[in-house]
Write a protein that binds this DNA or RNA. Structure first.
Lengths: 189, 189
DNA sequence: CGTAACTCGTACACTGGTGTTCAACAAGAG
DNA sequence: CTCTTGTTGAACACCAGTGTACGAGTTACG
């Protein structure tokens, strides 16, 4: 089972399947294994040779997406005025949420309950840390739980993705709208 | 096709199917016609005798839910200070969102795109009217589109439903949290 | 009470997906 | 160059759901 002993073409195929799956699932969260295999330029049997089930494939894609996202978010400067830091974090997070919107849906109904939440632990912790620093400095409200504020941020961003898809806002309006809303919502009473 | 010429037992069955469907779909958005028929104490064939397809059944249930909701919301006092009116409207809306959460999911993937939006027109208009009055009186912000504010309200409430389901908040915390968040988010800069 | 409306269960055809098996074939590793 | 690992398409079994057909049985309604 040594991963290192995989033949070169097998590794290439695994990568191709992973990226094809990311594309397909981002277009249609219910994309079938046939579609994905075809998009990867690979036989369906080959796909099953590498991923025992559709669920495990979705899981792998999702893990990869989170990892990529974490890399981006890790580069955001979270120092200085917490409000400005939040604006920067929002900008980057929004890009990711928008990009991976459909993939999230796919994960939610292919993965066991709680798994999605589990994989979101790291990005959520990052937001929480920032919010708590802001509270300590008195620029964010302390009358509501931090976890609630995180949830608000999450949902406002996903709402923006819906509004964008529905054509009620444009893609360059999204980030400023979200930021304006959150800064106001998080301000102390 | 005169609806009035339906036999009494047929009308009873239609009602039974409708309420059973509401229950089942609220528990599981993917509930099958067999489950619903069984819950209604009716044969599956009978169900298809009254509703030509699963989609039309879901539509009927959803229409009914919206109508019931509208009745409740219509009784909310929206006069006086717009902020207090918003608090009252939030309280009532939250009950409905929480109750019909799963049903909404069912509608979203059984009904043609746009249909859900279409049926939400009335409740959305009510919120919009209140928000615009508040803007005119200077107690709500005017730097963001009304439709965006409506969307924020919608998403914060649905987010609360998720938090509740995940056990991160309790059901009596939800309404105050939502209200506190929205009043702050909608305040003028 | 008789008839039309309604209901019932079973059975069937169809669809669209998942996951497996097989035997032939291709390609990388040493 | 050979052997092992990997790939391939076609075929198959399976499942779960939707929607339809039929014939016999019930129930309201006038």
């Amino acid at each position: 089972m040594a991963v290192t002993t995989r033949r070169a073409d097998a590794q290439r195929n695994i990568a191709a399947i992973l990226t094809a799956a990311a594309e397909c699932l981002s277009r249609d969260p219910a994309a079938s294994t046939s579609e994905i295999a075809k998009a990867a330029g690979v036989g369906r049997v080959t796909l099953y040779g590498h991923f025992p089930s559709r669920a495990e494939l979705v899981d792998a894609v999702f893990v990869q997406a989170i990892a990529t996202g974490e890399e981006t978010l890790g580069q955001v400067d979270l120092t200085g005025d917490p409000r400005e830091a939040l604006a920067r974090l929002t900008e980057s997070s929004w890009q990711l949420v928008d990009q991976y919107r459909a993939l999230l849906l796919a994960a939610q109904d292919a993965l066991p309950p709680g798994r999605v939440q589990e994989l979101h632990a790291d990005p959520m912790a990052r937001v929480e840390r920032l919010l708590e620093r802001g509270r300590a400095e008195g620029v964010f409200r302390s009358d509501l739980p931090t976890s609630w504020l995180v949830s608000v941020m999450h949902n406002v961003m996903h709402g923006a993705a819906s509004e964008l898809q529905a054509g009620r806002i444009t893609s360059d309006q999204a980030a400023p709208y979200i930021t304006a809303t959150l800064l106001s919502a998080f301000a102390p009473a």
